[in-house]
Amino acid sequence: MSVPHVVRRGVAELVGTAFLVAAVVGSGIAAQRLSPDDVGLQLLENSIATGAVLVALILALQPVSASFNPVVTLVERTLGLMTTGTAAVLVAAQVAGGLVGVVLTNLMFDLDAVSVSTHERGGSGQLLGEVVATTGLVLVVFGSLRSARVDTVALAVGGYIAAAYWFTSSTSFANPAVTLARTLSDTFAGIDPSSVPPFVLMQLVGGVVGAALLRLLHPRPLEAP
């Protein structure tokens, strides 16, 4: 008996988001340990690892499902690329995958499975950074999907996120599932739970702005996979 397509997509989103969070948090821990006195070098190491893993994961999982981000999934739903039920399954899988990824990463580095972060992030500049980062991500993802070579999406997204670590004041979280997961690791990449609601709200705002720009710039609709 064949596995339903929505189940396969959910598993791909769970696994992909878990590996993405592992890369973000794990490379942050490694960077903190290897370069304890140089925050700039820590961010460089963290951004390279995150961008690289995004390229690899999207290339590997794109034939099934490779959003790894509730905002991207919600924009897909807005564009009519999936049903509301499918979107709900994928978002739930992304959130679950992020939680699995952060727990596994903490354990890999001999830390407590869960350690709530105390790294407060916020302020108007960082919140604006999340709007900018998420808007750009939506434009890059869906703009690349309209190119003649769909495999360019992986390179475009990985490159964009690696760069956005540096050009946004918030270091480009741009992903509600990853943001939530990062509350459970009190390390370099962590975020205090109190900082999550405004970050996620700004990410959703960025998603709305990105979707509006997409409709303006790319009036031709995408076809559902």
Rank of each mutant, 00 (worst) to 15 (best):
E13M: 04
G122V: 11
A23P: 07
S170D: 12
L61C: 05
H119C: 10
S35V: 14
A88R: 05
A163I: 03
V25H: 01
A177P: 06
S27R: 03
P198T: 11
S35I: 00
E130P: 12
F19L: 15
L111M: 14
A211Y: 05
A148S: 15
A156T: 01
T152K: 13
L111F: 14
G80V: 03
I161R: 02
S47M: 08
T78E: 14
R220C: 07
L111E: 13
V140K: 04
V55E: 02
V103I: 08
G101H: 02
L14R: 00
L43R: 13
V72T: 04
L213Q: 10
S2Y: 13
V89T: 10
V24H: 11
V153P: 00
R146L: 08
V114F: 01
V138D: 04
F199C: 15
V95D: 09
V205I: 13
E45M: 15
I191S: 13
L180Q: 07
A189R: 10
F167E: 02
N106P: 04
F142M: 03
S65H: 04
G207Y: 02
R8F: 06
A162N: 04
L57W: 08
S2T: 12
E130M: 12
A189M: 00
N106D: 09
R146I: 07
V131N: 02
T168W: 12
L216P: 01
F19G: 06
A224C: 10
D38F: 04
V205D: 07
R220E: 15
V11D: 07
V89W: 01
A88W: 09
A22N: 11
G28L: 07
A88P: 05
V55A: 08
L74Y: 11
A93Y: 06
A133Y: 05
S117V: 06
T50A: 12
L216N: 10
P70L: 12
L214W: 01
G159T: 06
E45G: 14
R149P: 09
A212N: 03
H119F: 10
Q203S: 07
E13A: 10
F19W: 11
L127E: 06
G159P: 02
V150F: 12
A49F: 03
L155Y: 07
V64C: 10
V7G: 12
L201P: 09
A93F: 08
L107S: 02
S169N: 13
S115L: 00
A18G: 03
M108Q: 09
L216S: 10
L214A: 01
L216I: 07
S169L: 14
A49T: 00
G158D: 05
L81C: 08
S124C: 03
S195R: 09
V25A: 14
D37Y: 13
